Structure formats: C-alpha cells, structure tokens
Amino acid sequence: MNELLEKLAECVEFGKINNASPYPPTMKGQDGADEYAKQAIDEGIEPGEILKHGLMVGMEKVGIKFRENKVFVPQVLMSAKAMSAAMDHLKPYFSSGAAERKGVFVVGTVEGDLHDIGKNLVAMMVEGNGYEVIDLGTDVKAEQFIETAEKHPGSVIGLSSLLTTTMANMQKIVEIVKKHNPDRQICIGGAPITQDFSEKIGADSYKPDPQGVVEFLNSLAS
C-alpha cells in the first residue's frame, strides 16, 4: 500500500487529527489525518483509493478494538475526528459524483429518545467505511425515516434506542417502514436491544457494536 495511505490509516486508528493536535502524545508534533489526506489528493491519488486504503483501514482497526474492549468511547471519538478532518478533503469529490460511495445509510435515534452517543459512533464508523451517512438526529418519527430513505433507493435504515421505554416506538417505526416498503433493510441497536427483540419486531439486523453494523452493510453491498 502507498506509504501516504499507511500513515493516514495510522492517524485515523490512533486519533491523530492534524499537526497541531497534542493527541496521542506519542505522535505529538507529527502530521495528522488532515495533512496526509490533502497530500494524497495533491499527489493525484484517487479519493476512492484514499477512502478505501486509508480511512477504511484505520476505522476498521478502531472498530475491532472497540468491540474487543481494547479502546473506549473517547479514543473512538478521537479517531472519528481524525477521519472527519481527512473526509473534508474528499467530500467535494463524492458530492460532485467524481467518486462513488458504497451505499447510503439513514440513521437516527427513535421517537421519544434523545440519546445520541451510540448513534453517533455508528454513523462515524459507517461513514469511515465508505458509505454516505444521513444522520436524522434524535427523536425521529417513522415518517422522517421513510421520507429520507425514499429519496435514496437502496438505502438502509438504522434505528437506535437507549431507553427501554422507547423500544415500543422502535417496534412501531419498523412496522410502519416495512408496511410502506417491505424490502427496506432495517438495522437496529442500542443498550436494551437484543437479537430476540429484533426478530420479534421484524428488523433485518441487530448489531451490538458499530463494527457489526459496518459488516452488515458490507454484506448487503457485496
């Protein structure tokens, strides 16, 4: 792999945003994801290659570490910030159609629930793995999911819930979405959610961690 992309992947993995960032201490004073992404663009590396062989490599490593409890939320957030700094250089190419994404993921926290850390982690991990993410935020009704998904044929909906009291709303949203379009793929997650609950309400996938959501989306895209 290109040495620049290796350095970019390392910056994402360890959360090195830019040269000015003091985190992580072992990389203080070194260039970060921001500088390496710009340099890769300037050297003529295709944005899709930068995403695939730089950002996605780093985010996958972070996702696996998070799943295995080797890193925790603060480290993942730093990796996401590093990824975001790099993505700022790539997004113009994706929005112009000059580079392609793997698919579209419409995500939100269900109606009645205002928690968003888990949802944000999933959104950042999915974006870092090559998907366009449309984040509808918190307290999202079924109609908002349907309306947004309809604008993006083939898109997958992700529902998040942290409160046991909003699990009923998650079930309602799944039922409404499936009634509107039985083929729409729905992935659910959150602290109180289980595989049994997912099967009971007719969701297509339940994943306990962000990397699992990425793997589900990749299985659909392949």
Rank of each mutant, 00 (worst) to 15 (best):
V122G: 00
L55G: 08
D31H: 11
S205F: 14
D139W: 04
T194A: 01
Y206E: 04
G130Q: 06
F66H: 11
K141S: 07
E215W: 15
L220E: 03
K65S: 08
F105P: 02
L4I: 15
D116L: 09
A37N: 02
N2K: 03
K141M: 13
I64P: 06
L159H: 02
A9S: 13
E43V: 10
M170W: 10
Y23P: 01
N2S: 14
Y206D: 04
L114R: 05
H180S: 15
K7Y: 03
S198W: 09
D31M: 13
G189P: 14
N2Q: 12
F14D: 02
Q75S: 12
H180E: 02
M59T: 13
N129P: 10
A203D: 00
V106F: 00
E13A: 14
K65P: 03
K38F: 07
S155R: 06
E127G: 12
I50T: 08
A80Y: 05
V107L: 14
Q39T: 13
L136G: 00
E132S: 14
M27A: 15
G58M: 04
N218H: 09
P22N: 10
I173F: 05
V57P: 10
D34Q: 04
K200D: 05
Y206P: 07
I188S: 10
L163Q: 08
G130H: 05
E132T: 11
K141F: 06
T166C: 12
D34S: 11
S21K: 11
I201V: 13
M167L: 15
N2C: 07
G29I: 04
E147D: 07
V122K: 00
D183N: 05
S205I: 10
G15Q: 00
M56N: 02
D88K: 15
N2Y: 09
Q75V: 11
V214P: 04
V122I: 02
C187A: 15
C187F: 08
A9P: 10
F216I: 04
I176W: 01
I173R: 03
A40V: 05
S198A: 15
S160Y: 13
G103P: 08
K200W: 00
D204H: 14
A221D: 09
G137F: 03
E175Q: 15
G158H: 09
G32H: 11
P208H: 10
A80T: 01
